[in-house]
Amino acid sequence: MSDATPEEMMTIAASRALRPDDVCFVGIGAPSAACNLARLTHAPDITLIYESGTIGTAPNVLPLSIGDGELCDTAVTTVSVPEMFRYWLQGGRVSVGFLGAAQLDKFGNINTTAIGDYHNPKVRLPGGGGAPEIASSCGEIFITMKQNQRGMVNRIDFFTSFGHGDGGDAREKLGIATKGPTLLVTDLATWKPDAVTKEFTVVSLHPGVSREQVQQTCGWPVTFAENVETTPAPSALELTTLRDLHARTKAAHSGDAA
């Protein structure tokens, strides 16, 4: 299957990173598609958690919000929001947090709060929601976003959630025991943090993507791994499953009641 769009490739590559026994805290948007694709392909028993309190949910269509009714209908259990954040997230029960980002830097720090000065913002964004504690309490963090110069920046305007700070052992210095960002999947490439510096490094280019394309759409000088691989192209199963999921979602969210 070679006719996948870059966005489809991104979602499919991100979905592959999830393991069948993961307990995954799902961010809305691109992460939600990747997590549900994993559940519908290689990880049918994955536990997906949305911050509305739904644990072990299996929606037939992607939710528009983190609290759509179908998330509750298909969940193993639905708990209150304080319980969600106290027992399940803070309690250390979640292996992966899957986040999107408005602004991202090379150390996996994320800004979804404001562009410009916090007190006098050029653009006021929605804010962090659950992300500040997802970023510090989940075993590790996967990030997915489309590449562009405005999003992948040398310096983010606000630290909504902490990745690797200014690199190296920044997390340990703050007393954060979890791994933080271990994976970034964009529409062009797959990135992993350098073992020492923690800077995101391109380890795999999606089929047909050049190093120049990756650099042109990224605001910091890109580091490439010694051996850059080519991301395996989407399988027929991955692509049809994803397209069916999007088609069902579109039908459910436009027009009349689903």
Binding site: R86, Q90, Y118, P132, E133, A135, S136, F162, I176
Partner: peptide, 12 residues
């Protein structure tokens, strides 16, 4: 609670 570690909100 265990939170806000490294998060900018704690500064503003």
């Amino acid at each position: 609670f265990r939170g806000y570690r490294g998060a900018g909100l704690a500064d503003v």
